[in-house]
Design a protein around this nucleic acid. Structure first.
Lengths: 122, 122
DNA sequence: TGCTTGACCTGGAGCGGCTCCAGCTTGTTA
DNA sequence: TAACAAGCTGGAGCCGCTCCAGGTCAAGCA
């Protein structure tokens, strides 16, 4: 599977995939004789995973930490799994804060809209 | 009122205020004999306004459009007010989309956390 | 009288997370 | 044999700041 197909299958763009590789969020991507990247099913699954994590707004530094834990740790090792869990929990916490900010923003906007609609003064 | 005081009173940073001026989101800021910016009550109020709009995640281009409408339009003119209202409505729409994304992200994260906690497989 | 301190000024670099582009190689097709 | 497509790399550009270097100016102090 070449990079274009991987992009289509993962929902990332070609540029983003190359950027993720450069940034150390992908395990080493094997190349064919021409120097083209070749993605197998495992690599694709990881790209999808990254896409989903990114969609949650996880910062790159954390995605990188997560990637390293996933790809270098012994699968049977408990600490790595605990570390990954911790990253996810911290991130969910952050999302909760973002939700609170979003709520406040909507409240303010709605108030402001009421003012501009002439339904309220001040 | 100097820039430092304006920063404290508006909740923006000194750098952000200068940046906003450079970016055309402030009406011309008068200077004293030394070339220092002087902020009056009206200018401060506008800084606070910008801070609140920014907190809603409004993009700069739109804040700039808004700023221009606020500071160049005849206060009695209805079209400018309608334009401003339109910007706010469009922005609230965007926030609604963001909320949907946030919901999806939280759902995914919570699922993933369950997996890592061993409460669920796959 | 100079010397330091501190607040301000400007222009420009750096950040995250991409996105796009120029200029190159390599393989296929007409 | 030439054109075209798909990939490659390195580097610039985007937003919304943030930080920094290097400069000016006024006040306070020896």
């Amino acid at each position: 599977m070449n990079i274009q197909e991987a992009a289509e299958a993962s929902g990332l763009t070609v540029d983003t995939i190359r950027y993720y590789e450069k940034s150390g969020m992908l395990p080493p991507v094997p190349r064919d004789g021409r120097g083209w990247r070749r993605f197998d099913a495992g690599a694709l699954e990881w790209l999808r995973n990254l896409g989903r994590l990114r969609a949650t707004g996880m910062p790159m530094a954390e995605m990188r930490r997560f990637a390293v834990l996933v790809h270098t740790a012994d699968p049977a090792e408990a600490t790595a799994a605990a570390d990954r869990l911790e990253i996810l929990l911290a991130h969910r916490q952050r999302l909760a804060c973002r939700r609170a900010e979003l709520d406040a923003a909507e409240t303010y906007l709605t108030h402001k809209i009421a003012v501009y609609s002439g339904k309220e003064t001040s």
